[in-house]
Design a protein around this nucleic acid. Structure first.
Length: 611
DNA sequence: TTAGGGTTAG
């Protein structure tokens, strides 16, 4: 075989991500023929191993090279980026300067910028940008495209646009990076505006726009754009946009639409793609159809950490804690290494049922066995578990040892537990701490006020009230939606204009009377405003989830599960009411609120009154 | 040899 033929074959392997054994065979033939050490084979081999995901082999070849040039360095840096090891990319770059005394070229700059983007390290990214701007490669458009992506990923879309604007000859990659940057940053109109102007209206730019909007929580807009993309008959030659649109169904908790998208996925032949299967597992779990989620999960041939984590988190969110923990054991037995998301799900599951020892073991194993540094979310879950289970001193010690700036949520969790457990001293200590910091959540003020009132500290109660009065709370209107068949009805709190309002009111009144006979007393402690007790009760009576449940009871096929999605968290009183209603009418009611899932059945809730 | 679009938590 000729040298050029070997080179051609190596490049083909890199593009096709050929199997490790094939690459090794080809490499062996190159060694046998004696050309493995001849230019440009050493660099081409590093590139090949790197692109096919064998960074260690690439590194071995690199270390054994007697002479390394710019291409060798660019190839090994790219290989580390490819293996998602951006810190190594940056540390190796320092070695490039120190050991080989080489200055970065445009290929190296592109790798460095990509590593900074991966780490969301804008400080370092700006240093690289400055060095690039002073170099002879400052007009390179490829590096500029990677800078656009870096600034956008670091949450600086305006800086991204400044670089984008300076690109002389913008190609599909530069446009896609900028559209994606705007969309991910939540700059919906800018993203759509730019998309309308791009001369590259292809699957890449459509995917960038739609996925970015899904990621920034604009699922509805993403869906309409997806429909427009289908109308334009864009050939969906890869499944990337589909995994995002499945994700949009998950975020919006729209089961019927999710099923239709699943149908499309099957029709286009992508059901067995791992990204797609994983997003389907998550979608069905989030749409409260945990049975279908399990079915999809069961059919995945090669499950990765995301597949396992999705089903573990799904089980945990639906209150199936034993199942979540058993799945974790199975995952570890299958040789899959858990990641930081897996542990958020597991700690959350333990909190649900007060499994303190298990939670402690998992938290420690995350650090000691898997080398994962706990994030604020992990600490919040762990402190929540400890404090809810009455281990208040330990919870406070852990909180004080957290190496981050603490947020309101973690203190509020601890304070709630102090109040519930009657630990007044610690409660006051934490309340004082909270009072001296910035509070944004109105419910934290209510909590503080209740704690001080419980300790008869009236001066502080009035201080909290004054602070509350001075704050302008953004009042988000509460609404609940209920779906059956192809119909979706949305109810807003206090809505009195619905065509069936009289029937809904009468049914709620009947149910209220029945509940009161069973000992129900409305709990108005979560109502924020100063008003008469009766008025507070009236407000609770018109909470949107109750309207949706009543409508569902009147309209849905008898015996079917009522599935409701609420934009805010279910209040304590509605939670009690929904438990009672499930028992009175003997129906299962599933509510997905802003935080979690509640399966109300026979007077109980799957969340174990944990929310 | 370098750049752009996808899944899990919060």
């Amino acid at each position: 075989m000729l040298v050029s033929q070997y080179l051609h074959q190596l490049k083909l392997c890199a593009r096709r991500q050929t199997s490790f054994s094939t690459i090794k065979k080809l490499h062996a033939r190159l060694i046998k023929t004696g050309i493995a050490q001849c230019e440009p084979f050493p660099n081409t081999l590093i590139d090949l191993y790197g692109k096919c995901g064998h960074v260690d082999h690439a590194r071995q070849l690199f270390d054994e090279m007697p002479h390394r040039d710019h291409v060798s360095w660019a190839s090994i840096l790219t290989a580390h980026n490819h293996a998602n090891l951006p810190r190594r990319t940056l540390s190796m770059f320092l070695a490039m300067l120190d050991i080989d005394g080489l200055h970065p070229d445009h290929f190296v700059f592109a790798s460095l910028v990509k590593a900074c983007a991966c780490l969301c390290d804008v400080r370092l990214g700006k240093q690289v940008h400055a060095r690039f701007a002073l170099s002879q490669f400052r007009d390179d458009d490829v590096v500029k495209s990677s800078l656009v992506d870096m600034y956008a990923k670091c949450g600086l879309p305006d800086d991204a646009y400044a670089v984008f604007h300076s690109i002389c000859s913008k190609n599909s990659a530069s446009w896609t990076a900028m559209i994606s940057g705007y969309a991910r940053s939540g700059r919906k109109l800018d993203a759509i505006g730019l998309f309308k102007r791009t001369p590259f209206r292809n699957l890449f730019s459509w995917t960038a726009l739609i996925s970015g909007l899904v990621q920034s929580g604009n699922g509805v807009d993403a869906f309409y754009l997806f429909i427009e993309m289908r109308r334009e008959e864009i050939d969906i030659v890869d499944p990337l946009v589909l995994s995002s649109i499945v994700g949009a169904c998950a975020n919006l908790a729209v089961l019927e639409l999710g099923k239709q998208v699943h149908g499309l996925v099957i029709a286009l032949g992508y059901e067995s793609c791992l990204y797609i299967s994983n997003s389907l597992v998550d979608m069905y779990a989030k749409c409260s159809d945990i049975v279908s989620a399990n079915e999809i999960f069961g059919r995945i041939q090669q499950r990765d950490v995301v597949s396992w984590t999705s089903i573990i988190v799904g089980a945990a969110q639906h209150g199936r804690v034993k199942e979540a923990l058993a799945l974790y054991d199975q995952m570890v037995a299958d040789g899959i290494k858990p990641n930081e998301v897996t542990f958020v799900g597991l700690l959350y599951a333990c909190s649900h049922v007060g499994l303190v020892d298990k939670g402690r073991t998992l938290f420690n194993s995350m650090v000691e066995k898997y080398g994962i540094r706990p994030s604020l979310q992990h600490y919040t879950c762990f402190v929540d578990l400890l404090s809810r289970s009455g281990h208040l001193d330990e919870a406070e010690n852990v909180t004080n040892s957290i190496p981050f700036e603490l947020d309101e949520a973690i203190w509020a969790a601890l304070l709630t537990a102090c109040k519930d457990r009657g630990n007044t001293l610690m409660g006051i200590r934490i309340a004082d701490r909270l009072l001296s910091s910035k509070i944004e959540d109105p419910s934290t003020y209510i909590l503080l006020s209740n704690v001080y009132a419980g300790a008869c500290m009236w001066e502080n109660v009035s201080k909290v009230r004054k602070l509350m009065g001075a704050m302008e709370f953004k009042k988000i209107p509460g609404y609940s939606s209920i779906e059956f068949g192809k119909e979706t009805q949305v109810f807003y709190a206090g809505e009195t204009s619905h065509p069936m309002k009289d029937e809904i009111f009468n049914l709620l009144k009947e149910l209220d009377a029945d509940m009161r006979r069973r000992g129900y007393v409305p709990d108005t402690s979560s109502v924020l405003h100063d008003m008469e007790h009766q008025e507070k009760e009236r407000q609770l009576f018109w909470h949107s989830e109750r309207l949706a449940v009543a409508y569902g009871l009147l309209k849905a096929i008898p015996g079917t599960v009522l599935r409701i999605v609420k934009n805010l968290r279910v209040c304590g009183d509605c939670h009690t009411v929904l438990k009672l209603i499930s028992s009175i009418v003997k129906r299962e009611i599933v509510v997905r609120d802003a935080n979690r899932y509640h399966h109300f059945k026979e007077g109980k809730c799957s969340c174990n009154d944990f929310w």
